[in-house]
Write a protein that binds this DNA or RNA. Sequence first.
DNA 1: CTGTCATTAGTCAGACAG
DNA 2: ATTACTGTCTGACTAATG
Length: 390
Amino acid sequence: MISIRRIAHLDMDAFFASVELLRYPELRGQAVVVGGRNVHQPVEQPDGTKRFARLRDYAGRGVITTSTYEARALGVFSGMGLMKSAQLAPDAILLPANFDAYRDYSRRFKNAVESIAPKIEDRGIDEIYIDLSTIQENTNSLARRIKQAVLDATGLTCSIGITPNKLLSKICSDLDKPNGITVLSMEEIPARIWPLATKKINGIGPKAAEKLTRHGINTIGELAAAPVQFLVSEFGRSTGVWLHQVAHGLDDRPIVTESEPKSISRESTFERDLHAKQNKAELTEILTSLCMRVADDLKRKGYASRTIGIKLKFSDFHAVTRDVTLPMYVSDGTQIRKMAGECLKRIPLTQKIRLLGVRASGLIPMAEAELNHAGIQSEFPFLAPGIPKI
DNA sequence: CTGTCATTAGTCAGACAG
DNA sequence: ATTACTGTCTGACTAATG
C-alpha cells in the first residue's frame, strides 16, 4: 500500500521587515532594511512623528538581514554589506533587528499552522514544512485556510508551495512571492521546474551553480538531461547522484518533527581588525566573554559538550578553525576557556584578526553527561576536575 | 614479521542556508 | 569603509585499531 505524499513549504514574506512594519505602519510602501549593529531605534519627535535612521547615516561592518520588496527593487538584498547598500539606496530606512519580537511572531504563526496540521518541521525562524498527506481536504482550500490562520494570528502574509515532496515545495513557495500559493504535481515538472536556474534547488549554492555553468548547464532541465555518469565524475558519487535525482524532482526525505542540536556557538566581528600581539588583552577578553556566553547557552539549553573549537577570521577573510575533544563532557565556562586557549595556541598569528568565535559540539543532554562524567571519573580519576594536558 | 585493508574517530576546511 | 551570525553537513586527510 503506497500513499501519495502531500507536503507544504510555508515561507513568511520578508519576515523581519514585515514584523517591523506592524510596529511602524507609516513605513509601509517604503524601502526599509533591517540589520546592522548599533543602529538606533526610531526617535519620537516633538510633532509626534518618528525620526528613522537612513542607510546613508550608517558607519560600520553590519549587513542587511532583511529588506522590504521596495528595497529589493533598488538592488538591496539580505547579506549585502550596509556600507555597500547605502550607495545603492542612501534614503532607505534602516531599522535595528528585534529578535525577541521575531521569535514571538514565529511562535504565533507556527502555532496557527499547528492547529490545522500538526505534523510540522521547523526550518528556522520564518519557514516550515508541513505534512498534509493525511488531511482530507482540497489542496487549494487547505492552503488558503492555512494562510488565513497565519494572517489572523500575526497580521502577516506568507507564501506556500504544495507538492509531493520537500524539494519541490521549497522551490514552489518561492515562485509566487509574496502572498502566493503554488500547487504542483510531478507531471508539471518539465513545464514549470525545468526552465528554472539550477540555483533554485535548495543545496545548490553559488559554487555548485558556477561549476555547472562552466559545463554549459544553466537550468534544472539541462541538469536533468546531463548523463548521471558525467555528474558523478565531476561532483563525486554522492553529489552526482543527488544532482541527477533532484533535477528530476525526486526527493524522499521525511518530515522531521524533532531534533537535538549538534553544536552551540558564538562569534563576533570586531569594530576594527585586531593584532594578535598589539591587542592581546582585548582579544583575550573577547575570547573569555565568548566562552562564557557559550557556557551560558549550554546551561540554559541543558547540554554538555566534549568538543570545543574556536574560529578566527583574518583581515583577508581567510578563516581557520581548531578544536579539541575530551574524554569527558564539560559545560563550565572556565573549562571551556582553557580548552579554547589550547586551540588558540595552535593557530599561527601573523595577520590581523577581524572575527573570533567559540563553538561547543559533541553535545549530550546535561543529565546524561553527569552519568557519563561519573563513569569517566571513576575510570580516569586523574582527569577530574581539571583539564588534561593537551 | 610485514604489508594491506577496512573501519572508526578526530580534525579541518568549505559549502550552504536562514 | 564590503562582506553578520548561528548552525548543519560533507569531503579530505590522518591516526589508531584490528
